[in-house]
């Protein structure tokens, strides 16, 4: 039996061939090394994300999250729900806290769930994958399966917003969380702890609808990483990853910059340090190749 078991909420972007599929592949790799068993919540649905507010409103958004909770409660009793996407984690956890805080809301939600023959009892515990790694395994525990050191790699830890605010990971500060840096150091890499854009918002969904405005943010995020001598950026969030990686070419075109900064997930770094191949780490999924990491993986 696996050492730890969780009810897994992959979220839309981490599905196969979705924009964060590389996140999923590498997460599976590290779970194997750490002896974690993730079981997908049967027939899970989208959380509605932050931008769902406009059309979705309050109760429908909470109800669809509660549907996932109800499924987990029934089929994977006693297991914490773990999300890899910051936005999923946030929507789910926010829904959970609202439901915990109001009997009336829970009642209305269950009225809605009843339409599909479901019921939520109120016992969900929603966590982010990083939380699980840091709190349940600890930095020392994360070191255990290491086969290679990421020695010499200079990495800027870009935390973004939603893995950080309003809930935060492991009680860390909102303005200067250190956990990504600590993870990088655990893996033997060089964490650029003075990187000052680590919690700057990339624009989130507005990178899509208001590209001009968000690209200024993204430019700052990448530029500062260069200023600190970073060779790559690491993130815990699929939307952050996508926004910061994908728009670099756009910014280059419009503003004449020469950005070519790889943006990887912590799970990809870990996979490589745990001896996984470039394929296990889904490094083929990068738009901007993380060559230095590939090289270590090939060693």
């Amino acid at each position: 039996m696996a050492k730890k078991e969780y009810a897994f909420y992959p979220g839309c972007s981490s599905q196969l061939k979705a924009s964060a599929s590389n996140y999923l592949v590498s997460t599976n790799s590290i779970c194997k090394s750490l002896d974690i068993k993730l079981t997908e919540i049967p027939d899970w649905n989208c959380c509605g994300a932050s931008v769902g507010y406009c059309e979705g409103g309050e109760l429908p958004r909470i109800a669809i999250n509660a549907r996932n909770f109800a499924q987990a409660e029934t089929h994977l009793p006693g297991q914490d729900i773990v999300a890899t996407c910051a936005a999923c984690w946030l929507s789910a956890r926010e829904s959970k806290e609202r439901l915990d805080g109001s009997a009336q809301l829970l009642k209305e939600t269950n009225e809605a769930l009843a339409a599909a023959g479901l019921h939520y009892n109120g016992g969900a515990n929603v966590r982010h994958m990083v939380e699980v790694l840091i709190e349940d395994f600890g930095y020392d525990g994360l070191k255990a399966p290491m086969k290679k050191s990421l020695e010499g790699l200079k990495i800027a830890g870009y935390v973004g917003c939603q893995t950080n605010r309003p809930f935060g990971i492991d009680g860390e500060s909102f303005e200067n969380p250190m956990y990504l840096d600590k993870m990088v150091e655990t893996l033997g890499g060089e964490a650029l702890t003075k990187y000052e854009q680590k919690v700057t918002c990339c624009g989130g969904a507005l990178a899509f609808s208001e590209p001009e405005k968000s690209q200024k943010q993204i430019r700052d995020i990448v530029e500062s990483a260069y200023d600190h001598g970073a060779e790559m950026i690491v993130t815990p969030c699929p939307l952050c990853q996508a926004n910061v990686e994908v728009y670099q070419s756009e910014i280059n075109k419009k503003q004449g910059t020469k950005f070519n900064m790889p943006v990887v997930y912590y799970s990809q770094l870990m996979t490589v340090a745990y001896g996984g191949s470039a394929k296990d780490a889904a490094l083929d999924g990068q738009l901007i190749k993380a060559e230095k990491l590939e090289k270590i993986a090939g060693k």
């Binding site: 649905n45 429908p60 549907r67 209305e108 809605a112 339409a115 599909a116 023959g117 479901l118």
Partner: peptide, 18 residues
């Protein structure tokens, strides 16, 4: 989602209440 019917019913009901 496989149970699309149920999923839509939940949203419809929630919307109705709200």
């Amino acid at each position: 989602v496989k149970d699309l019917k149920g999923f839509h019913a939940i949203i419809a009901k929630a919307k109705e209440i709200e």
